[in-house]
Amino acid sequence: MIEVSHLSRTYGGLHAVDDVTFTARPGRVTGFLGPNGAGKSTTMRVMVGLTPASSGSATVLGRHYADLPNPGREVGVLLDASAQHAGRTGRETLRIAALTMGLPTARTDEMIDLVGLTPTEASRRVKNYSLGMRQRLGIATALIGDPEVLILDEPANGLDPAGIRWMRDLLRGFADQGGTVLLSSHLLHEIEVIADDLVVIGQGRIVAQGTKAELLAAAGTLVRSTATTELSQALTASGVTVSRSGPDLLRVDAEPDLVGKVALAAGVALTELRAADGAGLEEMFLDLTADTAREGVAA
C-alpha cells in the first residue's frame, strides 16, 4: 500500500509536483502515466525520501519511507537503471544490496537467474551492460529483499519485446500474490496491458485516476453508419454527447448497448458498433494531457 497525500514539490517557481493525491493498493498494479517531465520521477523520488517534499506527504505500508527499519525488505525500488556503479560487477552490485539488507549472499545467484542474466554477464562490470541488462539488474536489486511493495520508474525502458513480456508476467504474478506495484511509464500501451488502476499526471497535476475499466468506459463508444446525421440527432435527443470522429464515424459518451438501442429505435442501420477502448485510452491520454503537454494538440 502506497498513499500519497497532497504532495507538492516546487523548484523556485516551478511546480514539478502539484498537490498529488493517490493510493496504490495491494494486489493491484497501479500505472503512473504521464508525458515526459510530468512529475512522475519527482513524485517517486519524494516517496522514497531522495527528494524532500515541499508540502504534503507520502507513506509506504503506513509509514514514512525513512521510518522503515530495513526498507529493502519491504519495498523494492528501481528509479533509474543507469544509476549503478559502472566499476562494479553485476553480481557484486547485488551482493552489496543483499549484505545491506542482511540477506544470505546465496540470494544473489537466485536473483541473477530470476532476471535472466547469465553467470558470465553477472561477472562483467556494469559499465559494459546494455540498458536492458541494467534494467534487469535493477529489477533484481528491487526484488532481492522479497518486498511486498514495488516502486519502479520506467522499468520497461531498454527491454526487448521478450523482456517486456517477461516483466509484465513478473509484475502480474507479484500483484496476484498480494503485492503492491506502482510503475510509471510514458508509454500508453505498456501501461494499458498491465495496470489495474491508472493515475494520469500532466505538468505535475493529476488529470485522471481510477480503475482501468472506469477510465476505458469513460472513453465511450465508436459507431459507424451511413446515416450519421439521423443517428446523431437521435442520440442527442436521448441525452448523450456525440462527436463526429470521421465522415461516417461518431464517438458517443455512452455504453455500446445504449447506442445500439437508440439506433434501433431510430431505425438507423449500423455498420460498426464498439467500445472505444484500445485506441480510446490513447485518445483519453492525449485529451487529458492536451492542455498540459508541451506539444499541445496537433489537431
Binding site: 522479497d146 523482456g163 513480456r165 500474490q177 503485492g179
Partner: peptide, 14 residues
C-alpha cells in the same frame, strides 16, 4: 542473455 523461460517464480507474499 539467457532465453527467458516461463513465468518466473517470485516468492512475494504480502
Amino acid at each position: 542473455m539467457t532465453t527467458l523461460t516461463a513465468t518466473p517464480e517470485v516468492a512475494a507474499v504480502a
